Amino acid sequence: MSGSVPDCIFCKIVAGDIPAEVLARNDHAVAFRDVNPQAPFHALVVPVDHQPDAAASAAADPAVLGHMVTLADEVANASGNEDYRLVANTGAGAGQSVFHTHLHVLGATTSMTETLV
């Protein structure tokens, strides 16, 4: 699946049909502020083309994830966040609530202390 999905909120934001505080965009992705921030700086980066999750985006076009990470870095740094966290939830059981690939860009918080390795 690519292009857009009529009932997808992120597709509507990418198309400009729903307002959002867009921070940056490139030919492959759009970054905007999360309406329910979980950190002092919380943006979302979504690909222009609809895929349900990061694994599906990687399978369809691995380069799109690189474009998303590049845009995430740009908006994090532009907001003064040299250090930040990227989170991609895949599936409802992992907390994904909008089934359009997206990265959460979280910065400016000291509460991110857990390690995964």
Rank of each mutant, 00 (worst) to 15 (best):
D7A: 13
L116E: 04
V69W: 01
A15K: 09
V46P: 00
T70M: 14
H50I: 12
D27W: 01
Y84F: 15
T70P: 00
L65F: 04
H67L: 11
A39P: 00
A43G: 00
A76W: 13
D27P: 00
L65M: 14
D7C: 07
T70V: 14
S79R: 06
P52M: 11
L106G: 03
T90H: 03
D27C: 02
G95V: 08
E82V: 06
D83L: 11
P37E: 11
N89H: 08
D27Y: 00
A55V: 15
V105L: 05
R33L: 15
A76P: 06
H104M: 09
L116W: 15
V87R: 02
E82R: 10
A54V: 15
A94V: 10
A92K: 12
L106Q: 03
H102M: 06
P6N: 13
A54F: 13
V46C: 02
N36R: 12
M1Y: 13
D7Q: 12
A76V: 13
A39Y: 12
K12R: 15
G107L: 14
T110G: 11
V117C: 03
A58W: 05
A55T: 13
N26P: 01
P19L: 14
H100Y: 10
D27M: 04
E82F: 03
A29P: 04
P40L: 13
P62F: 06
L65H: 04
G16V: 02
V75C: 03
R85L: 07
H50N: 08
G66A: 09
V5P: 00
A56E: 14
V35G: 04
N77V: 13
D53R: 02
V30G: 04
F41L: 12
M68S: 03
V5H: 05
A63E: 15
H28Q: 15
A56F: 04
H67M: 06
E114M: 10
P52F: 11
P37Q: 15
G3P: 01
P40S: 05
G3W: 08
D7P: 00
H42A: 06
T90C: 09
M68Q: 08
V48S: 06
F99M: 11
D7E: 15
L71F: 00
D61W: 14
V117F: 05
S111P: 00
H42Q: 06
A92I: 02
G3A: 07
H42Y: 07
E21A: 11
V46S: 02
A31R: 08
S79W: 13
A108T: 00
S111F: 10
L65V: 13
V5T: 11
M112S: 07
F32K: 06
D83G: 11
L86H: 05
F32Y: 10
M1G: 14
D53T: 08
C11R: 02
V45S: 01
T110W: 03
V30W: 02
S97F: 07
H28V: 15
